[in-house]
Structures are given as C-alpha cells and as structure tokens.
Simulated scan of single mutants.
Amino acid sequence: MLDLGRVVYVDAQKTGSTFLTEFLVRNSGLPVLFQRKHSPLTAEIWERPDVTVFMTIREPAAYYESLFRFGLDGSGNISAALRARGLAHVYEPDEKHFRAFIRAVNDGRRWGLMTRRLTTITSLERPGQLTRRVSTGGGARRRRRIHAVRMEHMAADLANLAEQWEGFSRLGALIPTADPSIDRNASSGRGFRLSDAARAELRSLDGPLGDLERPVLDLYARWP
C-alpha cells in the first residue's frame, strides 16, 4: 500500500504495482505518509473525508498465468504456501498443471484470488468503480468506494480518475501506453505460455474462472 494522504494506492502483486508505486512516488507531488509493499488498507484511511482509494487489477486469465509462472520460478508467497502444503507437484510448465494450480489456490474459497484481492465486492456502481462494506471504527460499517485501474489500460484509467483529483489526468498523460517496464517483474516461468484456446476458455464465464472471477470478468466486459 502507498499512502499519499488524499490518495491511497492498494498494490496487488503481479498487476504492475512496482512500476506504478515508483511512478506515483516520483510524479504525484504528494508526500508519502506510508509505504509497504502489498500491505492491506487500515480502518483509519476510511475516516478521511476526501480520500480516493484505488488499486490495480489485471484480466484474470493473465493474472493467474503470471502467478503460475512466478511460482514455476520458485518465487512468491503463493508458491511458498502451496509448496509448504505439499502441493509443489502443481508447478510443472504445462496447461494440465496450470489447471491444477487454479484449483489448488482456490480450494475451499467462494471467490478467486483476483476477486479476493479486490476485497468483497458488494456491487458495481458503474464501470471502473467497486463498492465494498468496510469497518470504519467503533464497529460501524459503511459503503466505501475503491476505484479500479486496469494494468492493461493504466494510463487511460488513471486519467479517467481526474474527477476525483485533477492530478490523475496529468499522471495518466505521463505513462506511455505500452511502457514495457509496467510488467518489469514478469517471470521466465520455465517457458510456460497459455495457448490461445486455453486463454479464451479461461476468459469465458463458462470456463474454470467463470464462477471464481465473475465480478472481475464482468468488469472487463462492461468497461471498454
């Protein structure tokens, strides 16, 4: 998480977060109040009257593929957790084991990893905005808005947040549309790549990620 006072960025891993965190620190012009990689939001943040909270997300098929490739290289906390539970066998560079990986990381969960990183979504207010119920101190729970910035459309989506803070439009203009450093931590993944057919199936609501990641897949479908 990166806390800039009036703007707070939630940096989900494998969503271009290293690039965007460094970019915001360098270009936002706002003081850094707190910075810790992949740390959760705190109740205190929601007590600020004019705070804008946003996070980066990623198309779910690409997100799972990136996490799987990361684990094939022996990296990441998800890989460490699965290996500690005796599930190291899912890390072989083929689609059969990739599907086993999806089942393993979502075993017993109602929602998939991408959706869980967006927290519990209670409604989609409009494209690009997620609403959740959050604890705001004293046991009270209110609806608060988290804005989603798609990794694949980072520049445009930041610019679209200009209504929240005029600085977002300037920041969006500074990000090159196809900056390769956005995905600078991409893994070699022992050469693993999803086939086009498997990717299309995963992106379908009838595919393996359909029920797990429906809110995120819907968000991508509604938000050109």
Rank of each mutant, 00 (worst) to 15 (best):
G167T: 00
F34E: 09
D3V: 01
N160V: 02
L41R: 10
L194P: 00
L72M: 08
A178T: 07
M151P: 03
R26I: 04
G5R: 03
P208I: 07
S123D: 13
W46P: 08
R132I: 12
Q164V: 04
L67H: 10
L4E: 01
R126G: 10
D218R: 14
G189H: 02
L118N: 09
D179W: 07
R144L: 07
M151N: 03
E201V: 11
L202Q: 00
F192L: 01
P31C: 09
G5A: 06
G29C: 08
N27G: 04
L130W: 10
T136K: 05
A12I: 12
V51N: 02
H147V: 11
Y63I: 04
I182W: 01
Y64D: 10
P31K: 09
S135T: 14
E152A: 00
P60M: 11
A200Y: 11
A156H: 09
T52G: 04
S17E: 02
F34P: 00
R132T: 14
G71A: 07
P40I: 12
A221T: 11
F54N: 07
A100D: 11
G71F: 00
L67D: 05
E47F: 06
V32K: 11
R58T: 00
L209W: 08
T21K: 02
F34G: 08
E44C: 01
T177S: 14
T21A: 00
I78R: 14
S28C: 02
I146R: 05
R141L: 12
P176T: 06
G71H: 02
V149E: 03
R142I: 05
F70C: 03
F19Y: 07
M114Y: 07
A43N: 14
R109K: 14
A12K: 04
E166Y: 01
E152K: 04
I78Q: 14
H153C: 04
R48A: 07
V105H: 02
I57G: 08
I175N: 02
N106T: 13
A104E: 13
L171K: 05
I121G: 02
E125K: 15
R126L: 12
L217R: 10
V53S: 08
